[in-house]
Design a binder for these strands. Sequence first.
DNA 1: CTGAAAGCGCTTACAG
DNA 2: CTGAAAGCGCTTACAG
Lengths: 341, 341
Amino acid sequence: MPRPKAAATLDDVARKAGVSTATVSRCLNAPERVVKATREKVMSAVRDLDYTPNFAARVMAAKRSFTIGAIIPTMDNAIFARGLQAFQEELHAHGYTMLVSSSAYRPEAEEEQIRTLLARGADGLLLIGHDRETAVYDYLERQMKPVVAAWSYRADGRIPSVGFDNRTSMRALAEEVIKLGHRNIAMISGISQGNDRARLRIDGLRDAMRAHGLDADALPLIETRYEIESGSEAFSELMSAPQRPSAVLCGNDVLAVGALLAARRMGLRVPQDVSVTGFDDIELAQIAQPALTTVHVPHREMGRRAALALIEMIESEGKGTSVNLPTFIEMRDSLGPSPSR
Amino acid sequence: MPRPKAAATLDDVARKAGVSTATVSRCLNAPERVVKATREKVMSAVRDLDYTPNFAARVMAAKRSFTIGAIIPTMDNAIFARGLQAFQEELHAHGYTMLVSSSAYRPEAEEEQIRTLLARGADGLLLIGHDRETAVYDYLERQMKPVVAAWSYRADGRIPSVGFDNRTSMRALAEEVIKLGHRNIAMISGISQGNDRARLRIDGLRDAMRAHGLDADALPLIETRYEIESGSEAFSELMSAPQRPSAVLCGNDVLAVGALLAARRMGLRVPQDVSVTGFDDIELAQIAQPALTTVHVPHREMGRRAALALIEMIESEGKGTSVNLPTFIEMRDSLGPSPSR
DNA sequence: CTGAAAGCGCTTACAG
DNA sequence: CTGAAAGCGCTTACAG
C-alpha cells in the first residue's frame, strides 16, 4: 500500500514523462509551444500523478499570482455583497482568484491588510472609496501594483475609481424630496469620518437644500453605524426633537429600514406622517414596508467593471481609467408629500 | 531622485544590518532567539527599508501559508454572510487570512476551487455541507490538509463538521405548525440535489408529518433557487392547487420572504389566511411583514467555531472534533393557527 | 547566539 | 521544439 505520498512536483512529472521540467512547465503554461506528441506524454503523466502545480513556487518564479485582493469595510452587510460577488465572478472568468478581508471601517486595519495582501503577492487591489492617508497612497505607489477604488467615483483621485457620484446622486434624491414640499428635513448618515461615500451623501443633501433656500447648516444630522438598530435609534432621537422633520433621508437602505421600524413602533405612518428614503437599493429596500424610495446603485455592474479595470491594468500595464456609473432614483412608497404642505 | 525601486528583500535587510539572512529571518519569526542588540539593528533596517516579507517565498520555504480557504455556494445572499464574516474575524485574530470563492451551487465548480485553493497553499479549507462525490473526499484525504464542513452537523461525515442539525431543527418547527392545527402543509425548498441542508430540512418536515399521522409522501413540494422571486413563484403555484395549503414551510428566510410578498399580491393575509415560516433567522426575517417565524441558526457562533476548529487542526495536527450547535424556534408573526381548525 | 548553505518547486532567458 | 541551469526570496537544520 503506497503510504500518503507528498504531492507530485514538476520534477516527478518530468521524470515520468521523460522530458525536462521546462517542457512540462511549457505544456502547462504555453501548450502551443510544445509539439503534440510531447504534450500528450506530459499531460498523461500529469493526470497519472494527479499533479497540481505548487502555487507559491509559481508565484515566486513568475512574479505573478493571479490573485486580486479586495478590502471592504464589512461582509456582514448587504451593501457590499452583491458588488463583491460580481467582482469575484468576473475575476474567476479571467482566471483570477479573490482574496478578501474586511477592515471593519478602521483605517489602520485597512492599512495592515493592504500590506498583507500585497505581501501575499496580490497582482492588484480593490479598495473602497478614497479616504485614506497620503502615506498609504505613497506606499501603494511604491508597490507599483494596480489599485482601484470602488463605490465612489472621483476624477482626481490618486488611484482610478470605478463607482458613482455619491454627492449628485443624493442631491438628486433630495431635490425630489424638496419638490414634494418638505422643508423640515433631517438626515441619518453613516459615520462620515474616513468614509467619503457617507460624507458626499451629506454634502449632496446640503447642496439641494441650499439650492432651494433652505438652511443647510441647520440640518439635523445623526451619524451612526450602518445597522438597522442604529437607524431606529437615530430616527427616534430625530423625531423627538421639538421641531419634527417631515422627511428623514438616510445614508443607506439599512439605516432607512431601521427608521421604518422605529416609525412603526412610534405609531407613525410612512409616508403620511413622515417620509423616509434610503440609498443603495439593496434587496431590503423592496421588502421593507412601505417599500423604500431610494437611490439605485448598479452594484453588479460596478463589481464587474472594477474587476475588468484591474485585470486590464495588470495585463496591459496601463494606469487605468476611472468609470462613473449612473445611478437613478427608485421611487417606491416611503416618500410622499409633506404633510404640512 | 531614487527611481521606483523593487521591494526590499531579506538580503537587503541583512546587508544593511550587517548580519546574515538567517538572523533577519529569526528576528522576524522567533525574535526571542536573537540577542537584543542584534535584533534592534535588524529591526531598524527593516523599518528603514520598509521591508515586507515576500509571502510566496515564505510559504514555499516554510510550507505554511497562514491562509485558509472558504468555498461557499454564494456570497450574494445573507445566508452565508454573517457566518463568513465571523469566520474571517476569528481567522484574522489568529493571524490567518481567508481566501474565498463561491461555487454557485455547482459541484464541479466546488471541486475546481478545492484544487485551486489547495494549490495556492491554503493550510485548511472550509466547505459547506456534506454532499459531494467520494472522489472529492479521497482527493482531500490525500492532500492531508484540515478540512471542515459547516452549516450541517453530521456525526459520521468523512470530514469533521461544525454546524447544526438541519433535520431535527426543521422537524421541531414543523411540530409547532402541526400543533397549531395545520394539516394541509406545503413546502418550498431549495434545490436538494447536492445540498444536504435542503434535503435534511425536507426530511425533518416529513418526520414531523409522519409522527402525527399525516401523509408525508403527499407533501406538496417545490424545489427552487434561493431567491425571493423564486419563493414568490413557488408560493403562487402552491396556492393555486385545488387543495390549498394552510401553512407553507420554506427552506429558508429568503424563500419565505418571497412567499410573503406573493401572499400580499394575492390578497392573502398572513397568518390569518395562510401561515408561512422561514429558516435561518437572517435580518430579513425581522424586517418582513409580518415578521417571520423561523428557525434561528447561530451563524456567528458557527463561523467562529469553524475557524477555531480549523486552526486547532492545523496547529496541533489533530483530526478535529465536530460540533453540533443548538438552534431554536423564533416565534414571530407569520405562523398562526390553521384557519380551518 | 549567529552564519554558510541547501532546499522549497516553479519559470524563463539562453542555447542548440 | 526542447533542455540545462540560474534564479525567485525565503526558512531551517547543521555547525560553530
